[in-house]
Write a protein that binds this DNA or RNA. Structure first.
Lengths: 352, 352
DNA sequence: TTGTAGGCGTTATCAG
DNA sequence: CTGATAACGCCTACAA
C-alpha cells in the first residue's frame, strides 16, 4: 500500500460534477447525462450552460467514481512474464492498440517469471476491477489465476496454455513452425540438428515445439539426426560453448535450431565466440529480431505476427465479455513466415 | 458480465465488505479496520470471525472504492513515446519495479509519438486518479500536460525536457556523452564525423546532443570535421545511403556517430548494404543494444543505466509527492559508459 | 473494543 | 426535457 502521508498537492483538486451543476444552475443528473452520452436529450440552452461551466472549471468525469456505480472500469490487465522480450513488447503493443480503440485502458504487469510476483500483481489487478486479463505468464498458473478462470472471469492466454485453466489462447502454430523449419533445413542440405530451447518448465509452447521436433526427427530418421539442449537464460555462454563444440565435432552438415529469440541471441553469441561461420553451420531461429538481417550473412528466422496476436487476444476478451462463457474455449494459432537468409544456405551443400 | 442480481446467491461478482461483515456478524467498520491496517484494535475473536468470513467469500478490498473516499489510488501513470524502443522498455521496467516496491501500480500508455494520442491518454490517466506521472513523450507537450504541471501535479520527465513544463527530469548527461564520444573517436584516429540524429523536433535530448557536438567540432576545428544528417524513422535506407556514400567519398578517416539506438540500427543496415567494413569507417552509437557486440567486429557504444534512470524517475515522483513542490525542479543526469569495440578501432590509424 | 451515520463522485430510477 | 433521491464499496468522525 502507498505510504501514509496526506496528499499535499490537493490544493488543485479536480472539479466535480456537482460543482459543474451548481455553476451551470442545473442538476447533477443533467450534467451526468451531458457527459454520459445522453447529451441529445438536453435542451440546447442547458447544453450550452453545462458546456460553459465545465470548460471554466476544467471538469473531467471521474472514471473511478463512475465505475464504482456502473461496475465497468474500462480497465483490462495484462500479465507479462518477461517485459524485455521483444515478443512480449510487440504483443503488448497490439493489445494496447486494440484496447484503446474500444475505449479500454491497459494495466501491464511484469512478473519477471516469478510466480509469487504474478500472484501479487493479480491481486492488485483484480482489486482495481479489471474487466479482463491477458496472460503471458511463466509456466505454472498461480492458484489465484486458476480461481479467476474457474469463476468464468474473462481471460485470454497469450502464446502458451496454462494447466488447470480453461480459456481462449492465441499464439503461434508451433507444429507448423517446426515443420517449416525442419523442411527448410533439410532442403538446404543440413543433416544434423541441435535444438536449443529454454527449459520447458511446463511452458506449453516450448513443450509443443519440442514434441513436434521429436516427431519430425522420427519421421526423418536416417536422413536427419537431432539433439536437444535446454539453456536457462541465467546461464552464460560458458555452458553452451562446449555443447556446440561437441556437436560440431560429431555432426555432419550441422545446423542449430533456436526455440525463441533469446536462444537465437545466445547461439549467435556463441558461434561468434567460437568463430564458426554462419551457413557452414546452419542457424534458424523462431522469432524475427531486428538484428537478424544485420549479422552477415543474415540469420534465417520464422516470424510471428506478434502485434496481430496481441490484437486478437484483446478481441477474444471482448467476445468473451459479451457472450458470457459460451462454448468451448478456442485456440487460435497463427502461421509463421519463413524469412530465408544466409545462415541456412551453405554453398557446399546440395539439396537432397 | 454477470447479471446484476442482488441475491446473496453465488453471484460471480466479487464479495463486498458489507457481505463479509454480515457473514462475520460484525459491523462494516470492523471489517474496514481489519483490512485497513488497524487489525490490532480488534479483539482476537472478532479478528478470527472476520478472517474466516473473508476467506470463505474470497474477499478482496476494492481498491477503486477505497480510493474514491481517500483520494489515494496507488496508481501512477507513464507516457511513453515509443514502446518499441528498447530504452523506453528498460526505463519502464525500472519505473515499474520501483513503483511496486512502494505499493504503487503502473499504468503505461504508448503515445506512438502522436501528440493527439498523448492528450487522449493523459485525460484517461488523470481520470483514473493517478498520483503521479512519468513522461517520456514526443517533443511538444500537450496543453493538457502543461496545465497539469502548472497546477503542481507531480510529474517527472524522462530523458527529455519539455518546453513550458517545470518538472524534475532524469536522463543522460548528454554533454558528457558527446564529449566522450568525440574524445574516443579522435583518439582512435578518426578525422571526419557524420552525426546521425532523428529530427530534433523540439526534443531536448536531441537538441543537447547536437549542440554539444557543434561545440566540440568548433573546439577541434582543423583536426576534426563534422557533418550532420537528420533521419526520420519513417524514411527508409534509400535516403541514408547516398548521404553516407557522399560522406565517404570526401572524408578522410571517416566515422559515423549515432544519436540513439534507432540511428545505430539504420547506420548498421546501411553500412552492410554498402559493404563498408566497420572500423575502416568508424561507428559509435549512443545506447547499448544487445546485438552491438554481435556484429563483427562489434559496435562501440555509450551505454546508459536505463533501469536506474527509470527507478530514479519514480523516486523523484515520490519525493515530490511528499514535500509538495519545494524548491527548483531538479535535473538528474547519468553518466554514460563507453563500451569500446572494433567499430572504432581501425588498425591503419594512429592516435594523434 | 465496537458500532452508527454520513459522505466521496457518479449513475440509475422514478417522478414531475 | 429535467430533477430529486438512492445506491455503488469503502472510509472516518463520532458515539457507545
Amino acid at each position: 500500500m502507498p505510504s501514509d502521508n496526506q496528499s499535499t498537492f490537493v490544493s488543485s483538486r479536480r472539479a466535480t460534477l456537482r460543482q459543474v451543476a451548481q455553476e451551470a444552475r442545473a442538476s447533477k443528473t443533467s450534467v451526468s447525462r451531458y457527459f454520459g452520452g445522453a447529451r441529445e436529450q438536453l435542451s440546447p440552452d442547458l447544453q450550452k450552460r453545462i458546456a460553459q461551466a465545465a470548460a471554466q472549471l476544467n471538469y473531467r468525469p471521474n472514471l473511478i467514481a463512475r465505475s464504482l456505480k456502473g461496475g465497468r472500469t474500462g480497465l483490462i490487465g495484462m500479465l507479462v512474464a518477461d517485459i524485455r522480450n521483444p515478443f512480449s513488447v510487440a504483443a503488448m503493443h497490439g493489445v494496447e492498440q486494440a484496447a484503446r480503440e474500444q475505449g479500454f485502458s491497459l494495466m501491464v504487469c511484469n512478473t519477471n517469471n516469478d510466480p509469487l510476483l504474478e500472484q501479487v500483481h493479480l491481486t492488485q489487478l483484480t482489486s482495481y476491477g479489471i474487466e479482463g486479463l491477458v496472460v503471458n505468464a511463466s509456466g505454472q498458473a498461480s492458484q489465484e489465476l486458476i480461481d479467476l478462470a474457474t469463476n468464468g472471469f474473462p481471460i485470454v492466454l497469450l502464446d502458451r496454455q496454462l494447466p488447470g485453466i480453461e480459456a481462449d489462447m492465441v499464439g503461434l502454430d508451433n507444429d507448423a513452425a517446426i515443420d517449416i523449419a525442419i523442411a527448410h533445413l533439410r532442403e538446404a542440405g543440413y543433416r544434423d540438428v541441435l535444438y536449443l530451447s529454454e527449459p520447458i518448465n511446463h511452458t506449453s509452447s516450448r513443450q509443443e515445439r519440442l514434441s513436434r521436433l521429436t516427431y519430425q526427427l522420427a519421421a526423418h530418421e536416417g536422413t536427419l539426426n537431432g539433439h536437444t539442449f535446454m539453456l536457462s537464460l541465467s546461464h552464460d555462454l560458458a555452458s553452451l560453448s562446449p555443447v556446440i563444440e561437441q556437436f560440431m565435432s560429431t555432426a555432419n552438415r550441422p545446423a542449430i535450431l533456436c526455440g525463441n529469440g533469446n536462444m537465437t541471441l545466445m547461439a549467435a553469441r556463441c558461434l561468434k565466440q567460437l568463430k564458426l561461420d554462419l551457413g557452414s553451420i546452419g542457424l534458424l531461429g523462431i522469432d524475427e529480431l531486428e538484428w537478424c538481417s544485420l549479422l552477415t550473412p543474415g540469420i534465417t528466422t520464422l516470424a510471428q505476427p506478434t502485434e496481430e496476436i496481441g490484437r486478437r487476444a484483446f478481441a477474444c476478451l471482448l467476445e468473451r465479455n459479451r457472450e458470457a462463457y459460451v462454448g468451448q474455449s478456442r485456440h487460435i494459432r497463427y502461421h509463421p513466415t519463413l524469412i530465408k537468409r544466409g545462415s541456412t544456405s551453405c554453398p557446399d551443400f546440395h539439396a537432397t
